[in-house]
Design a protein around this nucleic acid. Structure first.
Length: 798
DNA sequence: AGCACGCCGACT
DNA sequence: GTCGGCGTGCTC
């Protein structure tokens, strides 16, 4: 038997199946989707069996055998293998990357170089011997200062180099003690009278005949230590075995189950429409304003799917995957739910994944990669907040969870629900065309009015001499809420920019020497760090340029706001939530809980507070500067701004108290801002569509972003230029090719970045031309030190 | 000669 | 991606 194997080597010439002979004794076990260890060149690598066959085109004499089967049960089912193949074409990635993204990180290979002893220990020179005394190998990482000696021995042949392949986390095992069932044995046993511990345990055994108990539990209950247990095991009174166990990350086991809520008429209509199509491959766009009760529809639809004996995947953006959210699912579906989020360790994620694979759960709630949950009888896929850009992976494989969801829905003949208060233009356009079915929820479920939104012209404030970040109106409003003991959320719409260092004399901003980006101040380590290449340097005390001492550190946007806030409302209790204060695990949650319990009056934060914040006492939301995202050089700038403003406004007045929102802006007449005021999605959609049409961007055109990097600016630009010429000659005349132009961050890690864009409506040759381009890159440019990356349907083109 | 380094090609 | 093979060119 022959196996076609995709090996774990991400390189263009390797990106195809390699044939391997399967040794006779493994033939009965081998299945497609299993991981294998195979010899590749002069080393061993991990790979995936994608196909089994009897004969090979390849010279049988040169076929190498599979070295080892890593699985007994395939980690990828046929659906996944098929999907990987499609993803490869769809996103122009290596097949191995597509395969690897579908399994939990714990199962991906970890390669470790090591030196292996190849002769009796005595033949080694004295200084090396202790290193091989206990084990026949030495990890290369631990032996840096021994390299010279080791190299000599490698020439002699007494030591050979090797790479060890292991997976990253093992299954967690628990020791189980099984107490004998035979009372006679327990009575007959002979324990010395002074062996008090053993006698104590023996007494426990007699009371618990035949019981199987976890070793740690036994130690607690019987009050003995493990060696004592082993003593009695040796006497034949019990046996010990290892049992696989799951780590329990959630600690949510004691959640009370809750039933469904009554649906409103609008919810019911949407629910009915979906329910009628549960066995069809169909995509719904559920457009419901914030607070309209989309989640309840999800929950009840999932319930319906479970009743039919099928499974469901619920995707949410990572940031809204809060305990509040998962609790809601656990309340409804109990231990039928697996939760996958970034807070879990690799081992914990693996455990959740195994529950899915073993059909122990029926519902998965998770971020992007949960779309690959290996369900085999999938009945529903939901993407909540479908417009979120985090659904697209921003490195290879650059897949979009929405595309994967629709592919799987076709495979399983089940519906997809895309839910959002502010759908992406792409999805809404498809709904308009009838590709998706549009479902609308116009009312808030609890019938609260939308918060009143007021736009404040900051230019006007400036003219009146107010140079602070707070307009008079906002400042007054904040004070008013504090007097009424209500809560305020302040939102700083700043992206990426955090702390930097500026010289007030010469205006110098500390830049990374390798990248065209300013350095970020890290308070914990007292270092200036570059977020792109990892470069760091100490914080200067004088300006490196003009030696002035007036060099000043500008805190994260939020720190600065906090300082000003102290002047506006002295004594207010402020909680800050940004990258700095949420770096530690669980910090995010802690801050929110504290705020929810009323331990602060004002919550001040960035992007991350825009979602999932649902506290009844919040009656005022202030957006300090709505413009920042608006002026980014990206075709989605207006869309992002509209979405953000809508989302933030939704944080106010979610319960009985009415909410109000103040949006400060220097361009208050912009449609993204004026239309977000009353959540007028349709008019926004129309206007933004007109812009997209005029500028040739999605959804009118598909976009491909091709980026080059090279140490030399002109070389990078040159390849981009050649590419533009090549594309122009190959693609149809209606297709627009933009560029080449320098990327927004023109240099990262001393490599210059150039890019060009393809905008097309219909381009049957695209896949073929991309392959050709890769071929040119591979045969000519790659050798000259260039890199090329292709992003199909990028979420942004910065 | 001995080796460091860079370039190339192969990998079933 | 990663290794070995091979050529070049430098040093002891």
């Amino acid at each position: 038997m022959i196996a076609e194997v995709i090996v774990d080597v991400a390189a263009h010439p390797i990106d195809r199946p390699f044939d391997y002979a399967i040794p006779k004794h493994l033939e009965v076990l081998a299945e497609p989707g299993m991981r294998v260890k195979v010899p590749f060149g002069n080393r061993k690598v991990l790979g995936f069996i994608t196909n089994l066959k009897e004969t090979s085109e390849f010279d049988p004499a040169r076929l190498k055998p599979v070295h080892e089967l890593m699985d007994v049960v395939p980690v990828l089912n046929p659906e996944m293998l098929q999907m990987a193949n499609w993803m490869k074409k769809q996103t122009v990635c290596f097949e191995i990357d597509a395969l690897k993204v579908m399994i939990p990180a714990a199962l991906r290979a970890k390669y470790e170089k090591r030196f292996v002893l190849n002769a009796p220990l005595e033949e080694l020179p004295e200084p090396l011997r202790p290193h091989f005394k206990n084990k026949p190998f030495l990890r290369a990482q631990e032996a840096v200062e021994l390299y010279a000696l080791l190299k000599k021995e490698m020439v002699n042949g007494t030591i050979i180099a090797d790479t060890d392949i292991s997976q990253q986390t093992a299954v967690k095992k628990v020791k189980m003690v099984h107490i004998t069932e035979s009372l006679e044995t327990l009575e007959a046993v002979d324990v010395r009278a002074n062996a008090k511990q053993q006698l104590k345990l023996l007494a426990f055994f007699r009371k618990n005949v035949g019981r199987t108990i976890e070793a740690s539990q036994l130690q607690k209950e019987a009050g003995v230590t493990l060696p004592t247990v082993y003593n009695l095991v040796e006497k034949g009174l019990a046996t010990i075995s290892n049992m696989e166990s799951y780590r329990d990350p959630s600690l949510l086991s004691a959640i009370e189950k809750k039933g469904s809520l009554k649906l409103t008429d609008a919810q019911q209509t949407a629910f009915d429409a979906i329910e009628a199509s549960l066995n069809k491959s169909k995509t719904f766009l559920l457009h419901g304003i914030t607070g309209s009760g989309k989640t309840e529809i999800y929950l009840q639809t999932i319930d319906q799917v479970l009743k039919e004996g099928k499974e469901a995947i619920m995707l949410v953006p990572e940031i809204s995957l809060t305990p509040q959210m998962t609790v809601r699912f656990k309340e409804r579906f109990g231990d039928m739910v697996a939760v996958l989020h970034s807070g879990l360790s690799a081992g914990e994620k693996y455990d959740e994944w195994r529950k899915i694979q073993r059909h122990e759960v029926k519902v998965v709630v998770g971020a992007r990669s949960a779309i690959f949950a290996p369900f085999e009888n999938l009945g529903l896929i939901i993407l909540d907040e479908e417009h979120e850009s985090s659904y697209k992976q921003d490195d290879s494989p650059r897949y979009h969870a929405r595309d994967m969801a629709i592919w799987r829905s076709e495979f399983h003949n089940c519906p997809v629900i895309l839910g959002s208060a502010t759908p992406s233009l792409e999805s809404y356009a498809r709904a308009q065309k009838g590709v998706y079915e549009l479902l609308v929820l116009e009312q808030r479920a609890k019938n609260q009015p939308l918060p009143s939104v007021e736009i404040i012209d900051m230019r006007e404030e400036l003219r009146r001499g107010n140079r602070s970040m707070f307009s008079v109106q906002l400042a007054d409003a904040i004070r008013e809420r504090l007097e009424r003991k209500e809560q305020v959320v302040l939102f700083l719409n700043k992206r990426g920019y955090s702390s930097f260092v500026l010289c007030r004399d010469c205006g110098l901003v500390m830049q990374c020497p390798n990248c065209d980006i300013s350095l970020t101040y890290h308070r914990s380590s007292e270092l200036m760090k570059c977020h792109y290449c990892g470069h760091d340097e100490p914080v200067p005390h004088t300006c490196p340029e003009c030696t002035s001492e007036h060099i000043r550190f500008f805190g994260t946007g939020t720190q600065k706001v906090e300082e000003e806030l102290a002047k506006v409302v002295p004594g207010a209790r402020v909680l800050r939530m940004d990258v700095d204060t949420t770096r530690n695990k669980g910090a995010h949650e802690k801050i929110l809980t504290a705020f929810g319990e009323g331990k602060a009056d004002i919550l001040l934060g960035t992007q991350m507070i825009a979602k999932g914040l649902d506290f009844p006492n919040i009656t005022l939301v202030g957006v300090l500067s709505a413009d920042t995202t608006l002026h980014l050089p990206d075709f989605r700038a207006a869309e992002k701004t509209y979405q953000l403003l809508t989302q933030v406004s939704g944080r106010a007045g979610r319960d009985k108290l009415p909410g109000s929102v103040f949006v400060q802006s220097y361009t208050p007449e912009h449609y993204a801002i004026t239309l977000a005021k009353d959540q007028l999605y349709e008019p926004f959609y129309d206007q933004e569509m007109a812009m997209r049409r005029a500028s040739g961007y999605p959804p009118y055109y598909y976009v491909v972003n091709i980026q080059f990097t090279h140490e030399d600016l002109m070389t990078a630009a040159g390849y981009a230029e050649q590419t533009v010429r090549y594309l122009t000659s190959q693609l149809s005349p209606n297709t627009l090719i933009i560029g080449p132009s320098a990327s927004l961050i023109a240099r990262v890690n001393n490599r210059y970045r150039y890019q060009c864009l393809i905008k097309y409506k219909k381009e049957p040759k695209l896949a073929e031309v991309m392959q050709q381009l890769i071929k040119i890159y591979r045969t000519e440019w790659i050798k000259k030190g260039a890199t090329l990356s292709i992003d199909m349907n990028p979420t942004s083109v910065m």
